[in-house]
């Protein structure tokens, strides 16, 4: 068993994850998730249940893979022209760490911009990463994205915050 990750490594992981999204290296990005990992954008502020309350997104690796494959597809008309995205992160803070259980939680306020054609939309979010290590490598158990306006009437978000 390798040494537990340092705070610095946790922070670098979160920053790297956003970079993969900005560069649309989505297969690499999906590889950051543990097999049972989830990506979650709650619908309600402070939402605790993803099962019986709906969400903007609550996706396991299979659904994320479908999404990523769809973005590559030729018949994906909503990606013609393609969207681009841009993340601006505050320095992630390590909120919790449990080396025994390999459980780490970081908190990262961010601005997210998605653009397509002549349109550009700005979102603000607090992002919580629940990380673990698999064979000594950091992996995402849960990436939770709390948009400040999660309960507003929104337009399309086609990429990943």
């Amino acid at each position: 068993m390798s040494a537990p990750p340092t705070d610095r490594q946790l922070i670098d992981f979160v920053v790297h994850e956003a970079r993969l999204l900005d560069q649309q290296r989505l297969d690499d990005w999906l590889g950051l998730f543990a097999e049972d990992g989830h990506y979650w954008i709650p619908l309600e502020p402070g939402q605790t249940d993803p099962r019986l309350t709906t969400s903007l997104m609550y996706e396991d690796k299979l659904l994320l893979e479908i999404r990523i494959e769809r973005l590559k597809g030729k018949a994906t008309y909503s990606q013609s022209p393609r969207s681009r995205c841009h993340h601006v992160l505050q320095t992630p803070q390590v909120d919790a760490r449990d080396d025994g259980k390999a459980h780490y939680v970081t908190w990262t306020p961010m601005h997210y911009v998605e653009s397509r054609g002549d349109q550009q939309t700005l979102y603000a979010a607090w992002v919580t990463h629940h990380l673990t290590t698999v064979d000594g490598v950091l992996r995402i158990r849960l990436k939770r994205v709390d948009l400040i306006n999660c309960d507003a009437a929104l337009g399309s978000i086609q990429l990943f915050v």
Partner: peptide
């Protein structure tokens, strides 16, 4: 049953839904 309803809603009708993106583009 509610879980399925909620999932359907999220997968098909949300601003983040891929099915929704397909339709809105049209």
């Amino acid at each position: 049953l509610l879980e399925r309803t909620v999932m359907y809603n999220r997968l098909v009708n949300a601003p983040t839904s891929v099915v929704g993106h397909d339709d809105l583009e049209i």
